[in-house]
């Protein structure tokens, strides 16, 4: 927590902390407390009068079918993004861990999508799935006879943003899985081989269990990513549509508050999001404290 050897000074530590603290207080703590405060108020149409209404904003939210459906969509979206990108990355990492020749080339070719902005990732896949000219839509139509149209079909639209979001996250997962795999002592694998376990069996009985701390950590990170960092992916492509099919919680809080200017309702949504981040952070930190170890 602190060094054994420290300096003594009356005001210097405060001066060193001041910039960070000031920015935190003005741009983080104050707005967050405002969100908390506004979530229990109602403002009239002209913004002239505000009254305290307790948890009414929250009650309204949970009575609102669009909010509930947004919750549902977010859940599906997060789980799909996490499982697709984790599964794909794990497969590639296991293969990359096996090969010796070309390993660095493979690695370089796999990590660059990390640098692509979520919004740009969305636009790239939006183009490839474009119903009339997109290469993927064309393949689906001519080879599989499926008429892809994310501007009309909610399922297609959700799948589109899921793929775009998962694609970008593969790099990150790949790097951590590869590091996790390389940290497993070779002697364990060799011992298992001498015990007569086939490569596949070794993977499921030795490698995968030993990798579980990495997997769990990545699961949390991916859920956080899918929850918050994919706003751009959605906003730049489907705009939450069609008919709210890709209206995730974060997109909705932006849309209701910033576009729709519903102060109390959007504040209540913010508070719910805050609760979700806090719980995810707690999970993440508890994990760091007691890593799943053997």
């Amino acid at each position: 927590m602190i060094k054994r050897v420290t300096f003594r000074h009356k005001w210097l530590p405060y001066a060193l902390l001041a910039p960070q603290l000031l920015i935190t207080l003005v741009f983080f703590i104050w707005p967050a407390s405002q969100a908390l405060y506004q979530s229990v108020l109602r403002q009239d149409a002209f913004g002239l009068r505000t009254e305290f209404i307790g948890f009414e904003n929250f009650a309204d939210l949970f009575a609102d079918p669009t909010y509930l459906s947004s919750f549902h969509i977010t859940l599906v979206f997060c789980l799909a993004v996490a499982s697709i990108s984790l599964g794909f990355a794990l497969m590639l990492a296991v293969m990359a861990d096996r090969v010796i020749k070309g390993a660095t080339t493979y690695k370089t070719l796999l990590i660059w999508p990390y640098a692509v902005a979520p919004a740009i990732a969305g636009v790239l896949w939006y183009f490839m799935f474009n119903p009339s000219i997109g290469i993927n839509a064309w393949i689906l139509r001519t080879v599989f006879g499926y008429d892809w149209n994310h501007t009309l079909d909610g399922g297609d639209a959700l799948l589109l943003v899921i793929i775009a979001a998962a694609w970008k996250q593969v790099s990150y997962n790949f790097l951590f899985f590869l590091a996790g795999l390389q940290a497993i002592p070779r002697s364990l694998i060799e011992a298992a081989a001498i015990d007569g376990a086939s490569p596949l069996k070794r993977f499921w009985t030795i490698v995968f269990p030993l990798l579980s701390p990495t997997t769990f950590f990545l699961l949390v990170v991916n859920v956080v990513y899918a929850f918050f960092d994919t706003f751009g992916t959605i906003h730049a492509t489907t705009n939450g549509g069609p008919a709210g099919a890709t209206n995730t919680l974060v997109y909705k809080v932006f849309n209701d508050g910033f576009i729709g200017l519903d102060l109390g309702g959007s504040a209540a949504q913010s508070v719910i999001l805050m609760i979700i981040v806090v719980s995810l952070t707690v999970v993440q930190f508890r994990y760091i404290e007691r890593r799943v170890e053997y």
């Binding site: 530590p13 603290l21 983080f28 918050f228 974060v250 508050g257 913010s270 508070v271």
Partner: peptide
């Protein structure tokens, strides 16, 4: 590198920013 009053308070104030991404406080 310093011991000073409110050291841990400062630490926690900074820590809290982890839990307050822009997305949860857009309007304010």
């Amino acid at each position: 590198y310093f011991r000073f009053p409110l050291r841990m308070t400062c630490f926690w104030i900074i820590f809290i920013t982890l839990m307050l991404p822009v997305e949860v406080r857009i309007l304010p």
